[in-house]
Design a protein around this nucleic acid. Structure first.
Lengths: 246, 246
DNA sequence: GAGTGGTCTAGACCACGAC
DNA sequence: TCGTGGTCTAGACCACTCT
């Protein structure tokens, strides 16, 4: 499912068309992430529609995660998700009880390589395109907890490939935005169970074949393009995730 | 978190109050699950409010899962979730490729016992209350795949305790509704990793200590009361779950 | 054609946040 | 006090579904 399409009424109703139009103006960069867009009354006037209509259009974009409303202040372009969200799948204890602590990050390796055919397809790149391939270890209070493999399409992340990985931030998504102008807007995570191979186990200070939970993530920018592929592995015994149905 | 409260604006705005009032009428049984409620225009007139206001109230209840709108037909009370939803956490292969097949169900044991203090608290029962305790095996094409422990508060499920488990349906939730008048409206599932003990492993035809994924579910009726506690275990290698963020 | 929910208008007033 | 989004009204007309 592409996230480039609005979840409802793409182009039929007037508010649907308005939502698409506003969405385009945001993607074009007319308002940066964090910016306030014009007031509802101003938008209604400039588009020549009733206030209720523009409000329905904005509601679509709020549902879509592109905009956020703040009563009394205005309507703002979403800043994007922060990279700490991987922790919602795990509960590492004995480290910090309260805990919304951000894990520290260390880049173990960084190299350029040719994209696999699957990667090229997902990124929308030609088959011989290059990608940046990273290995990353995340730790809480010095204890390794998550091991990640990250693949980034090269033309977009050229500046990262040139920079020294020693000085990278603990959170990648805000760094993507600052250094490459890429805002992560949505992620899709696929969870499955696996066992660590010898190398992975060593890095996480666990035994080989130790059970692990594997999170395969696709991250999308505001235009709905996939701009990151990531596989995260963590101790299966620390896995804890809650979800609600209806 | 109790699901008895609406997700937004409980009693402040007019549409908030209307939503609560309509919700009560549904819980009181004025309209049964599957029934159509009066048209928006009729409701607006009977409550003496504008059409837009009643529409906002209905929207809250739709978000809450209590009502469903069908363009051109009417607004209907939700029928509740079907029990097959546990399969969204697992992909059992080699059995049926296309597959939205409902697993067959066999009750392995059924007995009455005193509620634990935790169960009594969750169900809102006195500490010495009785519960119905079930063990259940679910199979696809004759192959066991899920093992479940189900706990039901006795006063509500008295009729089930008396009936022969041999003739129970494959899906429990529709049966709860038919025989006990209980509609499951929401579930909350908590996933974690574990290993099978000897008994569990034998029933699932797996080795002892085989890795498993454990789903701990609380199921709520329309009034937001917890009416079922369930623990489901399945082969961790069949675990597969996908989720989206923002 | 009759009845339903969905869209849209052009206003009014309220509640919140910043200055 | 002013500008923002949130609530509410009293209509009109459209689109879908059934008979």
């Amino acid at each position: 499912m592409s996230t480039a399409t609005l979840t409802q009424t793409p182009g039929q109703s007037r508010y649907g068309k308005l939502a698409l139009a506003l969405r385009d103006r945001i993607l074009q960069g007319e308002w940066a992430p964090g910016d306030m867009i014009p007031a509802e009354s101003a938008l209604a006037q400039s588009y020549g529609v009733a206030l209720g209509t523009i409000r329905q259009a904005l509601s679509l974009l709020v549902e879509d995660g592109v905009l956020q409303r703040r009563h009394g202040k205005g309507t703002f372009v979403t800043k994007g998700v922060d990279g700490a969200s991987m922790m919602r799948f795990f509960r590492f204890r004995g480290v910090d009880d309260g805990s919304s602590e951000t894990p520290q990050s260390r880049i173990l390796s960084s190299r350029l390589r040719r994209a696999t055919s699957q990667e090229a397809s997902v990124f929308g790149l030609p088959p011989d395109a290059q990608v940046l391939h990273l290995e990353r270890l995340r730790s809480l209070s010095g204890e390794p907890c998550l091991l990640e493999t990250i693949v980034l399409p090269l033309p977009l992340f050229g500046k990262l490939a040139e920079s020294d990985t020693e000085v990278w931030d603990d959170l990648l998504y805000p760094m993507y935005q600052q250094r490459c102008g890429i805002v992560i807007q949505k992620t899709q995570d696929s969870l499955s169970f696996s066992q660590l191979n010898a190398t992975q186990a060593k890095r996480l200070k666990l035994a080989a074949a130790h059970p692990c939970v594997q999170v395969e993530r696709q991250a999308f920018d505001m235009a709905g393009r996939c701009v990151e592929l990531r596989t995260t592995r963590g101790d299966a015994f620390s896995f804890k995730y809650t979800t609600q149905l209806q």
